[in-house]
């Protein structure tokens, strides 16, 4: 079984967002890039499965669509335990554009399970995984919070409206994963960092594709008004304010 993990290269989640002067784009200067947190959990689970079922899981491949500046993120994934990496040389674009690039790069490749994080921490799109599944004509399961392999059967728990569900599906399948799929993201070991030096990283040319949407501009979110402090001895005032001023109770 071959697992593909789709990785998005995003600014560190503690980054303060800065904009260009015309507010039409984000100013990425000085930003520290990381693996999108959900993708990192997906990768961690893939590695755990390979360690638990060495005979079953042959290979873990990581893929991203982006410029050469996304390669350190791919190499970190290799250091964490992925076997090889693909970069589609296609920076920018919306979710449809990115999904089309990924689909183009992996079409015909024998990936049985494709893992995608449920969203990326930059554009919060929640779209690439589902789109990729549709483009490849694979089944997909979304909001997956646990994943186990048994032979060719893929056992997952997914969140559904109002609860959760254990389901079985079979490869090939795209799993769109969320919190719970793995607990602590993998930290690369020295050995991992060393072996990543010699693991293959393939660069694939971009496919012709057009996006379905574009960014028009940005705004800083509205400032919160100052916090009204309430005396801990006077909780009735809080209740009163929530009832009459904020009108939420």
């Amino acid at each position: 079984m071959n697992i593909l993990v789709c990785i998005s290269n995003v600014p560190d989640t503690t980054t303060r967002i800065k904009y260009s002067a015309d507010m039409k784009s984000v100013d990425y200067s000085g930003v520290q890039w990381i693996i999108n947190p959900w993708d990192e959990l997906a990768l961690t689970r893939a590695i755990e499965l390979k360690e638990a079922h060495p005979a079953l899981v042959q290979k873990i491949t990581v893929i991203t669509a982006g410029g050469a500046d996304a390669e350190p993120t791919l190499r970190k994934a290799l250091a964490c335990g992925a076997d090889d990496a693909i970069r589609v040389d296609a920076p920018g674009g919306d979710s449809l554009f990115t999904a089309t690039q990924l689909a183009h790069a992996v079409k015909g490749e024998p990936f049985d399970v494709i893992l995608c994080g449920i969203e990326s921490s930059d554009y919060n799109g929640s779209a690439v995984g589902g789109m990729l599944a549709e483009l490849l004509d694979y089944n997909s399961v979304s909001a997956v919070s646990s994943l186990n392999l048994e032979g060719n059967s893929v056992k997952v728990t997914r969140e559904i409206d109002g609860g959760k569900q254990s389901i079985e599906t079979s490869a090939p399948v795209v799993l769109i994963v969320q919190k719970g799929i793995a607990i602590n993201p993998r930290i690369p070991s020295m050995r991992g960092i060393m072996t990543a030096r010699t693991k293959p990283l393939k660069v694939v040319a971009a496919a012709a594709a057009s996006p379905g949407s574009k960014v028009v501009g940005y705004q800083a979110p509205p400032q919160k008004s100052a916090c009204k402090m309430i005396d801990p001895e006077n909780i009735d005032e809080l209740v009163h304010l929530l009832h009459t001023e904020a009108r939420v109770i």
């Binding site: 970190k76 602590n184 960092i193």
Partner: peptide
């Protein structure tokens, strides 16, 4: 180097998380 930064990050992650 990229590798040196990766080690720094790994140490930071371990320290700040664990």
């Amino acid at each position: 180097s990229e590798e040196q930064l990766m080690i720094q990050q790994a140490a930071r992650d371990y320290a700040q998380r664990e």
